[in-house]
């Protein structure tokens, strides 16, 4: 009788383990980031930083010293205001997600920041540039986080998603009015052509 009870206990444990690993979507639930949605110009308070996408430009060139960067499409220039809240922070470059889920990385060679080191409590202005084709603008969302999506997929971290609210008409108009902007990495004061939402 005692032997039968042991066998039954083992079988029940195995069945419970199998049920947990197959029925519960552990891969999705455990890895999903915590997303805060916002619009351009709004302040987003994440546990580690406060961020605000002050505005955007579409640029045909980013003028730096001595090199001027020319995009393969157009540069979507993001003017960001960021403050580390609890401790110094290395804020990674955001990426753009278009209306169909394609991902566009911030450009590493342009005269813009790719990651920003933030001291605690002091607001910083940062300009980040993403080289995009025309189709990327329709329904586009800027995703801001402190990690690298290629490595950990923002696993269980806080992420800000800022919708650019560009429909096809607005995107077309933005594309056709692109102009050169000034290269700027980051600092305590913004450049003269800082975007206003």
């Amino acid at each position: 009788m005692r032997r039968l009870t042991r066998i039954a206990a083992v079988v029940a444990t195995l069945a419970a383990g199998h049920g947990i690993t197959t029925l519960l979507p552990t891969d999705k639930v455990a890895a999903a980031p915590f997303v805060t949605a916002a619009a351009v110009g709004e302040h987003v308070r994440l546990p580690y930083a406060e961020v605000r996408l002050a505005g955007i430009h579409l640029a045909t060139k980013v003028q730096g010293q001595p090199t001027t960067a020319t995009p393969y499409g157009r540069f979507l220039v993001l003017d960001l205001e960021v403050t580390a809240l609890r401790e110094p922070l290395l804020l990674a470059a955001p990426y753009l997600r278009d209306g169909e889920g394609r991902r566009y990385a911030a450009d590493t060679g342009a005269q813009c920041a790719t990651a920003v080191t933030l001291p605690t409590g002091l607001p910083r202005y940062a300009r980040m540039c993403i080289d995009v084709p025309r189709r990327a603008l329709d329904g586009a969302t800027v995703v801001i986080a402190r990690g690298a999506i290629e490595i950990d997929g923002y696993r269980r971290d806080a992420v800000a998603e800022i919708e650019l609210s560009l429909d096809s008409t607005a995107a077309e108009q933005l594309w056709n009015t692109a102009a050169p902007v000034t290269g700027f990495l980051s600092g305590s004061t913004p450049p003269g052509d800082w975007a206003r939402a």
Partner: peptide, 18 residues
């Protein structure tokens, strides 16, 4: 090296040609 601006080719995003 990119022909457009003489810099080292950067990340090429989806749909773009260099």
């Amino acid at each position: 090296v990119a022909v457009a601006d003489g810099t080292r080719v950067r990340t090429v995003n989806p749909g773009l040609s260099v």
